[in-house]
């Protein structure tokens, strides 16, 4: 069970505000995390605490394909991102790098900034501890659930490679 304070932002939180390209000359979290969301809210990184929850509106993570976007949010201590909807590359990237996300329009709309939130990731349940309201997130597509269950994309690829019998077998069309 995850418990944390909600930091709420609006629609279209894009990857350029999540981690501006000017910092993407590095893939080290130590360089990236201090700038997480700085063009959207310069105080975010000062106020976010380990385990806190990021709440966004529609189309969270739109823009570039930079995988450091979910990595940086995770690195900042965020335990889960809840949004009304996610941009598709960000959605795939988050699962691949192990940044928990939940698509849940009702929760994203209802949870107020600063509220304590409790989340059961496996069950996809979100509870606003201030209002007592409970919400259910959309299930993941089957492949994504498989990737989550196996512990990430690296393990998923290893399994598929071993199923082919040998390490670098060419794909069969």
């Amino acid at each position: 069970m995850i418990k944390g304070k909600a930091h709420k932002y609006g629609d279209n939180v894009d990857t350029d505000v999540i981690i501006p390209a000017r910092y993407c000359t590095s893939i080290n979290l130590a360089d990236l995390v201090p700038h997480c969301l700085e063009d959207l809210d310069p105080n975010f990184i000062k106020k976010v605490k380990q385990g806190d929850v990021l709440v966004g509106g529609k189309n969270f993570g739109c823009g570039s394909s930079r995988e450091v976007a979910p990595m940086t949010i995770k690195g900042a201590g965020v335990s889960v991102v809840i949004a009304e909807s996610f941009a598709r590359i960000f959605y795939r990237n988050s699962i691949n790098v192990g940044m928990p996300i939940l698509e849940c329009p009702e929760a994203a709309k209802a949870i107020a900034d600063g509220n304590e939130v409790e989340i059961d990731l496996a069950a996809g349940k979100v509870r606003d501890l201030k209002t007592g309201k409970e919400f259910s997130a959309a299930p993941f597509p089957a492949v994504m659930q498989e990737i989550i269950d196996i512990g990430g994309m690296a393990n998923f690829v290893k399994k598929r490679l071993s199923e082919r019998g040998k390490g670098n077998a060419k794909t069969s069309p």
């Binding site: 394909s65 995988e67 795939r92 990237n93 790098v97 994309m153 998923f156 690829v157 670098n168």
Partner: peptide, 11 residues
């Protein structure tokens, strides 16, 4: 796609 998805395609 992101970098990990690209790596998966490479593999």
């Amino acid at each position: 796609v992101g970098s990990t998805d690209l790596a998966a395609v490479w593999a």
